Amino acid sequence: HRQALGERLYPRVQAMQPAFASKITGMLLELSPAQLLLLLASEDSLRARVDEAMELII
């Protein structure tokens, strides 16, 4: 289940942060499945989480 969510998330994360897409997707997969579904449904929520992840990385 998580694998399938990751496969759906990755291209969207890659479009926002290509250099760190794998790392960010891995970080996002730590969230609950319900939270992941919310990110897939909301571009704004996904962008906010990706921005948060980038702050942790750099």
Rank of each mutant, 00 (worst) to 15 (best):
M27S: 02
Q3K: 11
A41W: 07
A34R: 07
L9S: 01
L37C: 06
L29W: 02
F20A: 05
A21N: 00
S42P: 01
R49N: 04
Y10W: 09
P33G: 08
H1M: 07
I58L: 14
P18K: 05
A48F: 11
G6K: 14
L36W: 03
R8G: 05
S32P: 12
L46F: 08
A21G: 05
L31D: 05
A41Q: 11
L9Q: 01
D51V: 11
V13H: 01
V50N: 00
E43K: 08
Y10H: 06
Y10N: 03
A21W: 03
T25G: 02
A19C: 08
R2W: 07
M16N: 02
T25F: 12
L36Q: 04
E30C: 10
A21E: 01
D44C: 08
L37F: 11
L39M: 11
F20E: 04
Q3E: 12
L37P: 01
A19Y: 13
Q17Y: 15
S42D: 10
D44K: 11
P11F: 15
Q3M: 06
K23L: 11
L56W: 12
F20H: 10
V13Y: 01
M27F: 06
L29G: 02
V50Q: 00
S45G: 07
Q35V: 14
A19D: 09
E52G: 06
Q17H: 10
L40G: 01
G26A: 14
T25V: 15
M16K: 02
A15S: 07
K23H: 07
R49Y: 14
L28H: 00
A15T: 07
R8T: 08
L28W: 01
D51E: 14
S45I: 11
L28Q: 00
T25P: 00
I58H: 10
G26N: 14
L29V: 05
L46N: 00
L39V: 08
L36I: 11
I57V: 05
L29C: 03
A53M: 11
P18D: 04
Q35W: 05
R2G: 10
A48W: 08
R8V: 12
A15P: 04
V50L: 03
L56M: 10
P11I: 15
M54Q: 03
I58Y: 11
Y10C: 05
R8F: 14
V13R: 02
E7K: 13
I57H: 02
Q35A: 13
G6P: 05
E43P: 12
E52S: 07
Q14K: 12
L29Y: 03
L56H: 07
Q17K: 09
L31Q: 04
M54A: 07
A15E: 11
L29Q: 03
M16D: 01
S22Q: 09
F20N: 05
Q17T: 08
P11E: 15
Y10D: 01
E43A: 09
K23M: 11
E55M: 14
K23V: 11
S45Y: 14
S32K: 08
A41K: 11
L29S: 03
S42G: 05
I58C: 06
M16Y: 14
Q14F: 15
E30M: 11
S32N: 09
A34W: 12
M16S: 03
S42K: 07
L56D: 07
M27V: 04
P33N: 14
M16H: 06
A15G: 06
P11R: 15
A15Y: 08
E30P: 02
S32E: 12
L5P: 03
V13F: 02
I57Y: 03
Y10T: 03
Q35I: 14
A48L: 12
A34N: 08
D44V: 13
L9W: 02
S32W: 06
Q14M: 11
Q17C: 12
A19L: 12
G26P: 06
L29P: 00
D51Q: 12
Q35C: 07
V50W: 01
R49A: 12
L38G: 08
G6N: 08
F20V: 03
M27G: 01
P11W: 15
P18L: 04
M54H: 06
R12T: 05
E55G: 12
P11K: 15
L37N: 07
D51G: 07
L9D: 00
L29N: 02
A34L: 09
L37K: 06
A4Q: 13
L40W: 04
I24G: 00
L36S: 01
L5M: 12
I57N: 01
L46M: 04
E7R: 15
M27P: 00
L9G: 01
A41H: 11
M16G: 01
M16R: 04
S42I: 04
P11T: 15
L56V: 11
S32C: 06
A34Y: 14
R12P: 03
E43C: 06
Q14P: 01
L28R: 00
H1A: 10
A48G: 05
M54G: 01
I24N: 00
A21M: 01
A4R: 09
P18V: 04
Q3L: 05
L31A: 05
V50R: 00
H1T: 14
P11G: 14
Q17F: 14
